[in-house]
Amino acid sequence: MNPKVDDFISNTKKWQPEIEQLRLLLLDCGLTEEFKWRNPCYCFQRNNVVLIGSFKEYCALSFFKGTLLQDSNGFLSKPGENSQAVRFFRFTNLQEIQELKPIIKNYIYEAIEVEKAGLKVIFKSNTELELVEELQIALDKNLSLKIAFKALTPGRQRAYNLYFSAPKQSKTRETRIENYIPRILDGKGFNDCICGMSKKMPNCDGSHKYIGEENK
């Protein structure tokens, strides 16, 4: 068990019993527990499989490649209109989780088999910017971040997406996204000045590098 998840659950004001039960189910299925995007995340061989989410009206299991699951019971739903990969399994009470325990485990095991088989989500080609998976998940999870990102110019969106998609490791991509969330929420582009001293506003010209030296 990850201590950061312990802290998350202890500080959760709503859905605490439900989240604890879902956590036990996921661990019982053999997944590794991590803490990403400020939520409990469960992985198989370092690949993200499912995220526990807490919302106002429900808590949920968010399957990263949910669109590849058969969903013969019809429990999965899209987190957003344009979501092509992630699917939610929503819960509104502890009894519901306990009664659906065998079915929930089947979904989890199927998601693990998807990773074992190395299956990938094939995104539909369109004229819109195709975001790196980790960024799309972060936007689906955080409405404020999604609104702020959509408010950026297409060029600024592309710059962020290019920077976030560069690393080969998913964990590195996640870290980059996490580090730049405050900047996006402030409406700043990746190459924008944030110190106010640039002579090429709004672009950064490296002036921030000399602020510390001038104050010495």
Rank of each mutant, 00 (worst) to 15 (best):
P40R: 03
E33A: 02
L26I: 07
C41I: 14
L26C: 13
E34Y: 07
G30L: 00
N39T: 03
E33W: 07
V49I: 12
R23T: 03
E33G: 00
N39S: 14
N39Q: 05
N47R: 14
L27C: 11
V49S: 08
D28L: 07
Q45N: 13
C43Y: 08
K36E: 13
L22T: 13
Q45V: 00
N39A: 13
L26Q: 12
L22E: 05
T32N: 02
L25I: 15
R46W: 07
D28E: 15
I19Y: 02
N48M: 15
L31I: 09
K36S: 09
R38D: 11
P40T: 03
N39G: 06
F44H: 13
R23E: 06
E34P: 01
R23M: 07
Y42V: 09
F44E: 08
L31E: 03
L31V: 06
L24E: 13
G30Q: 06
Q45W: 05
D28C: 00
F44V: 04
G30F: 00
L27T: 01
G30A: 02
F44W: 13
C29W: 02
R23V: 08
I19V: 15
L22Y: 08
N48P: 10
D28H: 02
F35H: 01
E20V: 15
R23C: 08
T32F: 04
V49K: 05
P40E: 01
L25C: 05
E33C: 02
N48L: 14
F35Q: 01
D28M: 01
Q45F: 09
R46T: 12
Q45G: 03
L27N: 09
L26W: 11
L24K: 14
E33S: 01
G30C: 00
E20M: 04
R46A: 11
C41D: 15
N47F: 10
L25V: 15
E33N: 04
I19A: 08
V49G: 08
R38W: 11
P40H: 03
Q45T: 06
D28P: 07
E20T: 14
C43P: 04
W37K: 02
N48R: 09
R46G: 05
R38Y: 04
E33T: 03
E33D: 00
V49C: 09
K36V: 06
E34F: 01
E34A: 08
N47D: 15
L31Y: 01
L24D: 11
N39F: 01
L31A: 05
N39V: 09
C43K: 10
N47A: 14
C43Q: 15
L27Q: 12
I19K: 12
N47P: 12
R38N: 14
Y42S: 09
Q45M: 10
Q21G: 07
R46M: 04
